[in-house]
């Protein structure tokens, strides 16, 4: 028969055991939740990277990178030639596409309508022969870029093909920390 002192001590020992067990269980659950959260975050980060927008040019273009101000000048038609006097053939995803909206908003602070108006004015003033080309799909963008010397266009990273040459922006390639075109 257990002694009364043991019985008196039993609750504290039992309490200690329960508390310890509860702490362990809590700790286990907290770790599981933290791991789950990390998994979600890494999946989201992967999704963000795949939605980055790459600046791509024809494979024969010797240029490896552009600065953001240079790219803006090209988008605005202020610069129309690569070195070697090869004309820049600017092509954008079709109007209404999220990629086009993001490129224009990020680089120029414009929406599609404002960008279209800028180029209409440019053509009207005789400063450009025509507006930039709009292409309907990632496939047509890839095909146009690989077939057109001087082509410069934008394509989501997840749609990149091996035949396309990707430019660095401000020294950063898509996927690298600090790449801002997304």
């Amino acid at each position: 028969m257990p002694s009364i002192s043991w019985a008196r001590n039993f609750p504290s020992r039992f309490e200690g055991t329960i508390l310890t067990t509860t702490k362990k269980v809590r700790g286990f659950i907290a770790c599981a939740i933290a791991l789950l959260g990390l998994l979600e975050r890494s999946q989201a980060a992967t999704a963000d990277v795949s939605h980055e927008i790459a600046v791509v040019v024809n494979g024969g273009n010797p240029v490896d990178g552009l600065s953001a101000p240079e790219l803006r000048r090209i988008l605005l038609g202020e610069r129309r030639f690569w070195r070697g006097n090869v004309q820049i053939k600017l092509a954008l995803p079709h109007a209404g596409s999220p990629e086009r909206d993001r490129v224009l908003a990020t680089l120029l602070g414009m929406n599609t309508s404002e960008f279209a108006r800028h180029w209409r004015d440019k053509v009207f003033r005789g400063e450009a022969p025509d507006e930039p080309l709009s292409l309907p799909s990632a496939g047509s963008i890839s095909r146009y870029t690989s077939e057109t010397p001087g082509a410069l266009t934008f394509i989501e990273r997840k749609n990149l093909g091996r035949e396309l040459k990707v430019l660095k922006l401000d020294g950063k390639a898509p996927g690298e920390p600090g790449y801002f075109l997304k």
Binding site: N58, G59, G60, N61, P62, W82, R83, G84, N85, V86, T148, P149, G150
Partner: peptide, 14 residues
């Protein structure tokens, strides 16, 4: 266009 120089693009005149 195997040679990475500016003339390679100019050679492919459209």
């Amino acid at each position: 266009v195997d040679e990475p120089d500016s003339h390679s693009m100019a050679g492919m005149a459209e």
